[in-house]
Design a protein around this nucleic acid. Structure first.
Lengths: 231, 231
DNA sequence: CGCTTGTATACCGCATACAATGTAGAAGCT
DNA sequence: AGCTTCTACATTGTATGCGGTATACAAGCG
């Protein structure tokens, strides 16, 4: 368990140490520096980040509530793992929420927000031109989430955004356990394009259909891989 | 701001003070002892609950992440308020999630879980016989949430359960701002009955339709009341 | 040889002390 | 009076210490 993060010591006192610790840990988990199943020990983290245990405790509690960190049988905190069945459940929730998301987006999205969506899509397009490597696929993955996140935000429904964030968190955890190299980025860009078009033209049914099939495709890819891994 | 809760001092050390504090505060908020907008001051709470600030800080962080407590402009923590537009958004999310909930319940619910559902419905039925007062309507409200919660749990989808809990939390906050006496409990029991029947008979479409109309009815009642209050 | 028991240690829960920061109220100036 | 400035205080942020508890490993006993 190695966190090579240097917290901003003196400059920019805006963010509390608690917040910085939280972000460092979260980042560490989602970026794969802390692997699912790893134990998280307050004293160790305190030593590595050079802060006292108090802000760390708060950060851990928060991560625990987000289900990125779980207490195992004897109460030790560990980085959460996602099983195959949980993956399916996660996707089902995501589909339910994103169906609402695109529906409301069709009704609510402002021109500026649509513009952001386009940029997100074209950025991915541009990135995909480059020769594929691990870092690139990380970036594409980030853009993928950003795309879905932008749609959610364009609804103006804060509740929806925070619920989806919850789901995305565990989703990224899931990715860590499957492929480091996102498999379907090529098709994905095409599908994002379709989703965007439907939203821009306010065609609710088309948008819902597009996002549903997009997610179902992703779901079946992940599930397939997970079950293969097990055997 | 008065919390008259005596934490179990010596017996049952199973629950940490942090957890007890969390529950005390949560209970205080949801039961209306702490009103939306009230400031939450660490030192005051510490004095009232006779614990140090450390566990309180952790509890507050957790409540903050659940959106039951929010930081206002100058960083003070306050009990969250729910606006009329948030109420609508909340209901929309709830409908999306509960649609999934009954769908999966139709497929997954075990006989034992269906039995629990029946008991929940009949309990409400029995309670409704008694002469109505404030305490009774509180109990009926609790049974209402329990009913929906049981459905979610019967899906076996833990992710869904925790997302819905999130929504229910704020929902109860919303109720505090509208009526103390739940308006539609009479119709509600009828609708619950229908939902249960549909799930028991594994009729997905009927169940979805029933739960959707149930929630939409509730939504329009709440929205109506909120807009009336404003004028 | 296995089971219990003892002991050292690692870790956590909570309390407390101190530092930093922001807010309110009073005093002083115009 | 109205405005500014300064001080005192209230509150939160962070560090640390102490005590309890569980765990692991070793020694003693059956």
């Amino acid at each position: 368990m190695i966190l090579v993060v240097q917290l901003t010591q003196s400059l920019q006192r805006r963010k509390s140490l608690y917040e910085q610790t939280y972000e460092a840990l979260r980042e560490g988990i989602l970026a794969g520096k802390l692997l699912p199943g790893d134990r998280l020990i307050e004293t160790q983290i305190a030593q590595q980040l050079q802060v006292s245990r108090t802000p760390i405790r708060e950060a851990l509690r928060q991560l625990q509530q987000e289900d990125l960190v779980v207490a195992d049988g004897s109460g030790w905190l560990r980085v959460a793992t996602v099983s195959a069945t949980e993956a399916v459940q996660l996707y089902n929730c995501r589909i339910a929420l994103e169906t609402l998301s695109v529906t409301e987006a069709c009704a609510q999205a402002s021109p500026a927000q649509l513009e952001q969506l386009v940029q997100c899509v074209t950025q991915a397009e541009a990135l995909a031109e480059r020769s594929p490597d691990a870092a690139l696929s990380q970036q594409l993955l980030a853009l993928d989430y950003r795309f879905h996140h932008l749609i959610a935000e364009s609804t103006g429904n804060g509740c929806l955004v925070s619920l989806l964030e919850q789901v995305f968190n565990k989703m990224m955890l899931l990715r860590l356990q499957t492929t480091r190299h996102n498999p379907g980025v090529l098709e994905v860009r095409q599908e994002h394009q379709e989703i965007y078009q439907a939203i821009a033209q306010r065609e609710v049914k088309t948008a819902v259909a597009a996002v549903t099939s997009h997610l179902k495709a992703s779901k079946s890819r992940v599930v397939k891989e997970l079950t293969q891994l097990k055997s």
